[in-house]
């Protein structure tokens, strides 16, 4: 675990030492603010629409952050040193995940200004805000795990980012395609898409199947990541 934390700490610090890292954090916070303005035009102290859009933005953010984790390191050549250090693949993967998760936590913390502003102007229900942020963490980690797996499979950061977005869009698209089906294929595709699993977070409810879904996506991403790292040796 010490090695994983070492990698995570380095990635976290390095992110905020680069203009890219600072820019993505500031940009994410600003985007959340713009979305808030649009949502509040409904004149209701409800953040369901805001969180819904935030989850989509998390997909973009995860793709951008994870492209640096493996693809950018391989392009620079530093991945070779990381993988030839006495560290197990799962430690590398855990470290990379925690590093991006730390960045994500800072980025998400910067959006806390939005619910605070809403609370200062109206009387929002605290429950959906709480579950909304639980959702942010779950969705964020799951999307990061997907992004990391894609990032490990390529040495081009741009390909990594576009690839991660493509995978996430494909998952999201499963929910749209399901609309034209019936019976269990419809159900399976509906459950495959993240869109169907975030709706509860927006409304103050937490259900086990949604939590299991995102934890599964996270676990599958990490396993794929380890396998990709091992297969490329």
């Amino acid at each position: 675990m010490r090695q994983a934390l070492t990698i995570a700490a380095r990635d976290l610090r390095a992110n905020f030492l680069t203009a890219f890292g600072l820019g993505s954090t500031a940009g994410f916070a600003a985007a959340a603010g713009v979305v808030l303005v649009v949502v509040l035009r409904g004149n209701q102290a409800r953040l369901a629409g805001w969180f819904g859009t935030l989850y989509v933005l998390l997909g973009v953010l995860a793709a951008l952050l994870t492209m640096r984790s493996f693809a950018e390191e391989e392009r620079l050549g530093t991945l070779e040193l990381l993988l030839t250090s006495p560290v197990r693949p799962w430690q590398v993967v855990t470290g990379k995940l925690l590093g991006v998760a730390g960045v994500l936590l800072v980025d998400v913390a910067a959006t806390l200004a939005c619910p605070l502003l809403v609370a200062s102007m109206g009387h929002p229900d605290a429950g959906p805000i709480l579950t909304g942020y639980v959702g942010v963490i779950l969705v964020g980690l799951a999307f990061v795990a997907v992004g990391l797996a894609v990032s490990a499979a390529t040495s081009n950061p741009l390909v990594a980012a576009v690839g991660s977005l493509a995978v996430l869009l494909a998952l999201w698209g499963a929910g749209i395609v399901s609309g034209g089906l019936t019976g269990w294929p419809r159900l399976a595709l509906e459950e495959l898409a993240p869109s169907g699993h975030v709706v509860g977070f927006l409304r103050g409810t937490l259900s086990t199947k949604d939590v299991v879904y995102f934890v599964s996506l996270l676990a599958l991403g990490l396993v794929t990541n380890v396998v990709v790292l091992e297969e490329r040796r």
Binding site: I7, L76, T78, T84
Partner: peptide
Amino acid sequence: RRSIGYMPELPAAPPEMTVRSYLRFCARL
């Protein structure tokens, strides 16, 4: 790998880090 110190052909190191903090990272790793 624990017994090896490896210097790859291309001298790769993260450009945003200082020399000292990078070496510290490598040592911890």
